[in-house]
């Protein structure tokens, strides 16, 4: 499969935070999700990947080119939605569209206004009178209106009401159907994005701590509920996020597929029970000090 975006060893230092040697590759046609706690570096990483900020070290290639060589072409093909979109505050949405349109090779004005209508954003309103969620929707509308093949979104569902969030998730799924367009989104609340993501990247403290296909991930991570003493010592010691309660204990295992055999006995006798883990459960086990 084609790689639409490839980052190698991205490093970026701020006073109080750094991206350290982040490498990732995003396949064409996929929906990839970057998850992690606050201050994990998701926004910074996305800004570098979308050509909004330079990295101090390392490289980014999108559609096979670097931003330094093909900035205009790449920004035409990428739709970026920041966490807190910035627009000229005293201008109307309509004015912004007229401002931006000439710069895009494939601006779709009709499509843009149709999206605004669906999103219930009034084109005649000034940006400063839009709510946070409406600004996000405006940013999304712009990103979808210039023929972009890659969407890079930073916490797009935050600030959206439940109806718009569902509509956005559906729209993102529709966007990639067909295999020639890609979505890369970051969120720290696994609230909606985890449903549609196929590939999961976990970021913590400026580093990639895990990367896996979502289905594979959820197949091997399970909650094990057990009566004290019911588990073989080796298995019990391998559990993470263990909670010991008066009437039984629980722990998370990332190795379920290999432990299935050893657990068969205790499972049958009812001294051990299994449960599915959520993406949030797995992420918490990767975060230091969670």
């Amino acid at each position: 499969m084609d790689t639409v975006l490839e980052a190698t060893d991205l490093t970026k230092h701020y006073e109080d935070f750094s991206l350290r040697g982040v490498s990732l590759a995003i396949r064409a046609g996929s929906i990839s999700g970057i998850f992690g706690p606050n201050a994990a570096g998701k926004s910074t990483l996305l800004r570098v990947l979308a050509g909004q900020a330079p990295a101090h070290q390392g490289s980014v290639q999108v559609f096979g080119s670097a931003y330094a060589d093909a900035e205009q072409d790449l920004k035409n093909r990428i739709g970026y939605v920041p966490q807190e979109p910035v627009f000229y505050p005293d201008k109307t949405v309509q004015w912004l569209a007229r401002f931006a349109a000439p710069y895009f090779a494939r601006w779709d004005g009709a499509g843009f206004y149709k999206l605004l209508d669906e999103f219930k954003v009034n084109p005649l309103k000034k940006v400063k009178h839009l709510s946070g969620g409406q600004k996000t929707l405006l940013s999304i509308a712009m990103a979808l209106s210039h023929g972009a093949e890659l969407l890079i979104l930073d916490e797009p569902t935050a600030g959206l009401d439940v109806v718009h969030r569902r509509a956005l998730l559906d729209r993102l799924r529709a966007f990639v159907a067909g295999g020639d367009r890609t979505v890369l989104a970051a969120s720290h609340i696994t609230d909606g994005l985890d449903e549609i993501a196929e590939e999961i990247w976990f970021l913590d403290d400026g580093r990639v701590v895990a990367h896996e296909d979502k289905d594979d991930l959820l197949a091997r991570w399970k909650w094990v509920h057990f009566k004290d003493g019911a588990l073989p010592k080796a298995i019990e010691e391998g559990l993470v996020r263990v909670k010991r309660l008066p009437f039984g204990s629980s722990g998370l295992t990332g190795d379920f597929l290999n432990l299935r055999g050893a657990l068969a006995g205790p499972l049958a006798s009812g001294d051990v029970r299994l449960d599915n883990a959520t993406l949030e459960d797995v992420l918490l086990s990767f975060i230091k000090g969670a």
Partner: peptide
């Protein structure tokens, strides 16, 4: 009055 963050998203080098 300028908003460079907005301009950065446009295909303008």
């Amino acid at each position: 009055d300028e908003r460079y963050a907005f301009l950065r998203m446009l295909p303008v080098p």
